[in-house]
């Protein structure tokens, strides 16, 4: 770790100004940031500790939804009675990620900002356009088993590694952001961005902006599933994960909100999937059609070619299970 100045942010406003400079960062749980600081992937000169700012609440919103404070831990979120009852896909996604120790420390806001597990990003002696713009992408033509098949660029094929945000995408959550000028709300589905020519940009946060919370829309019910395919039975990042909120009435899908992890630089949500599924009766052919839509532009990079059939088959498994559960 490089030396840094450590300040406990006394207020949200001051947290914003403390983190406005390009060499400043905010720290909450720290489980991802300190990992990367030890590797000198992150080298802030100033750290603003957000932990005592207070927005750790989880409370009902006026429209019947739920506000998840940015500083609430992943565990507090997953075990919250309303999350367990009304947003099971979110509880399941959180519990499928990391370990109890990490979830106990990691915060909701930090989770959205966690950075990729790409081997070349975390090794400062290797090229990485995300870490060092213009240095090249080590993963392309390198070891890329974990890497993206959707929305990649010739600059970066990293994946967003989290689970929670995949469920939030399926739930169509909103990220609440407090900025120097004004506060704003960003749909979760638009919060993370694709790498394009600026792979170092991972989300829409501007300097000095702080995530204060995440709001969930009123509960929609239905069958909610989170399916994570991984190499260990626990404590491993997703090869493919799927968050699904599915309803079936009269033998036909009436809702099919799906989001995917492990496939792209962001939780992947394709509205065409719901369009194709809703109004149709579950069948292998229909699931194949959905997979065709999902994977139409998929591209493998050798080692991760398997993710294309794996995503297809996992989608089958999830839709099949959802159809059976809903029936």
């Amino acid at each position: 770790m490089r030396p840094f100045e450590f300040t406990r942010a006394p207020s949200l406003k001051e947290a914003g100004s403390l983190t406005a400079a390009s060499d400043s960062m905010a720290i909450a749980g720290g489980t991802n940031l300190l990992d990367l600081m030890k590797l000198q992937v992150e080298t802030p000169s100033r750290l603003a500790d957000l932990n005592r700012l207070g927005f750790a609440q989880i409370e009902d919103t006026d429209d019947g939804g739920l506000l998840l404070g940015a500083l609430a831990t992943n565990t507090e979120t997953a075990v919250h009675p309303r999350v367990r009852r009304d947003y099971p896909v979110l509880a399941r996604a959180i519990l499928a990620g990391a370990t109890q120790q990490l979830r106990n420390k990691a915060t909701n806001g930090g989770n959205l900002c966690q950075r990729t597990r790409c081997f070349y990003f975390t090794n400062i002696d290797q090229p990485c356009n995300k870490r060092e713009p213009g240095s090249g992408c080590g993963a392309i033509d390198g070891i890329a088993k974990l890497h993206a098949i959707l929305g990649t660029s010739d600059q970066c094929i990293a994946t967003y590694p989290g689970d929670m945000a995949v469920a939030l995408s399926a739930l169509d959550a909103t990220v609440l952001v407090s900025g120097p000028g004004t506060d704003r709300s960003v749909p979760l589905r638009e919060f993370h961005v694709l790498p394009g020519d600026t792979p170092w940009v991972e989300n829409v946060l501007e300097r000095g902006e702080i995530i204060t919370g995440i709001t969930l829309p009123p509960p929609v019910g239905g069958t909610q599933l989170y399916r994570k395919v991984r190499e260990r039975s626990s404590y491993a990042f997703a090869l493919v994960s799927i968050a699904a909120i599915v309803e079936i009435a009269d033998g036909k899908f009436t809702r099919a909100d799906l989001a995917f992890g492990g496939l792209a630089h962001k939780p992947w949500h394709d509205p065409h999937l719901a369009d194709a599924l809703v109004g149709q009766a579950p069948s292998r052919e229909l699931f194949d059609t959905a997979a065709d839509i999902l994977l139409e532009d998929a591209r493998g990079y050798g080692e991760n070619d398997f993710k294309i059939p794996l995503a297809r088959r996992t989608l089958h498994a999830v839709l099949q299970q959802a159809a059976e559960d809903a029936a």
Binding site: F119, N123, I143, R232
Partner: peptide, 22 residues
Amino acid sequence: DPRDGHLVNCDLAEYHVPVHRD
């Protein structure tokens, strides 16, 4: 890595020793 021979998965997150649940 096939190009410089460096060990890519050089930590316990990515070199998968079995965990309890395995």
